[in-house]
Design a protein around this nucleic acid. Structure first.
Length: 192
DNA sequence: CACTAGATGCTCT
DNA sequence: GAGCATCTAGTGA
């Protein structure tokens, strides 16, 4: 497990690009990561952990190599890998990837979409893997597995859709991958 | 192609 | 109750 510690331990902005090309396995599906974002905990206004621990975010304040799962916009789950040491709350959001094994299984969950859209976007990625709140707080290697990939050239830029620290370039992706999201600025929500 | 409105429910104030 | 680390279908060009 030394390899896993080396891959996942450290400041989120350093761990995030290391995860590009790595493999995530859950629910009979394997995904090769093409896009991730770093969230640096209490020092990062865009992080869910910014204002300190809450029932939802306390996983991030625990030891690294655990899974933080959250629910957004009434219908989507998103997966984070906790990487900071206990007491600090940094994590990496898994935004997109290529399904390299278990395509049929992923398609059962995602429907009849083009291959590059099976796991494009945090909600779709979690859906393809069959991940929901039940995975939250589990240790990596327990139910969700992560394997290192081959290091690759990557690009970086501002994180998608965040209201705070909108200019911080902590999104990392593999260039030329169709699964990577187009950048979108945060947009305030209308209500009726 | 680009752009946007609406769905939907959890979490914290 | 307000805001949200989203996604898709729909419109218009």
């Amino acid at each position: 497990m030394d390899t896993l510690e080396r891959l996942l331990g450290g400041p989120a902005p350093e761990v995030a690009p290391r995860l590009l090309g790595a493999y995530v396995v859950h629910g009979g599906v394997t995904i090769e990561l093409t896009e991730v974002e770093a969230y640096a905990g209490t020092g990062d206004p865009a992080s869910h952990a910014y204002r300190g621990p809450t029932p939802r975010t306390e996983v991030m304040f625990g030891p690294p190599a655990h899974v933080y799962v959250y629910f957004v916009y009434g219908m989507h789950w998103a997966i984070n890998l906790v990487c900071h040491a206990e007491g600090s709350a940094g994590a990496v959001l898994l935004r997109a990837g290529n399904v390299v094994d278990g395509v049929a299984r992923a398609r059962e969950r995602r429907g009849d979409v083009p291959a590059h859209r099976l796991a494009s976007g945090p909600g779709n990625l979690a859906s393809a893997l069959g991940v929901d709140r039940a995975l939250g707080g589990t240790r990596i290697g327990d139910r969700l597995a992560v394997r290192a990939g081959v290091p690759r050239e990557h690009e970086s830029g501002p994180r998608v859709g965040v209201a705070a620290a909108a200019e911080v370039p902590w999104r990392f992706w593999l260039p030329g991958e169709a699964s990577v999201s187009a950048y979108r600025r945060h947009q305030p929500h209308r209500r009726r």
